[in-house]
Amino acid sequence: MGIKVKVVENGRLVLPAAIRKQLGLEKGGTLILEVGDEEVTLRSLEQVLDKVKATFAKYADLPGMSVDDFLANRRADSGE
């Protein structure tokens, strides 16, 4: 179920206090707005970063994907 919000002067949205609290938003907080075909999604910056971390976490244990492997490959490429 959706929550009704108003668009006020200059296109600003007024988010209810309960939503701000749920997202951990304080004055000056950052939201990421994603526009779909027929929808708009608001996520906190922390939610977006958590999603990105989860996406890349599955690659962390693959051979050759560590920082040490990367640096070793760079050294080898440069002839060190």
Rank of each mutant, 00 (worst) to 15 (best):
M1W: 10
G2W: 02
I3V: 00
I3S: 02
K4Y: 02
K6V: 04
K6W: 08
V7I: 09
V8Q: 12
E9I: 05
E9R: 12
G11T: 12
G11M: 11
G11E: 10
G11W: 03
R12D: 11
L13E: 05
L13A: 11
L13R: 12
L13F: 07
V14Y: 09
V14R: 09
L15G: 02
L15M: 01
L15N: 03
P16Q: 07
P16G: 04
P16I: 02
A17V: 06
A18E: 14
A18G: 08
R20D: 04
R20I: 00
K21E: 15
G24R: 14
G24D: 15
L25M: 12
L25S: 01
L25G: 04
K27F: 04
G28I: 01
G28E: 01
G29V: 03
G29W: 09
T30V: 07
L31I: 07
L31C: 06
L33W: 03
E34P: 12
V35N: 14
V35T: 04
V35L: 15
G36T: 03
G36I: 01
G36E: 09
E38T: 09
E38K: 15
E39F: 06
L42W: 02
R43E: 01
R43Y: 04
R43N: 03
R43Q: 00
S44C: 05
L45V: 04
L45T: 01
L45C: 08
E46S: 12
Q47N: 06
K53V: 05
A54N: 13
A54T: 04
F56P: 10
F56S: 08
A57S: 13
Y59T: 05
A60M: 10
D61H: 13
D61G: 05
D61W: 11
L62W: 14
L62Q: 13
P63A: 08
G64V: 02
G64S: 09
G64H: 06
D69C: 00
D69L: 02
D69R: 00
F70L: 04
L71C: 08
R74S: 00
R74N: 01
R75E: 06
A76W: 05
S78A: 03
E80V: 04
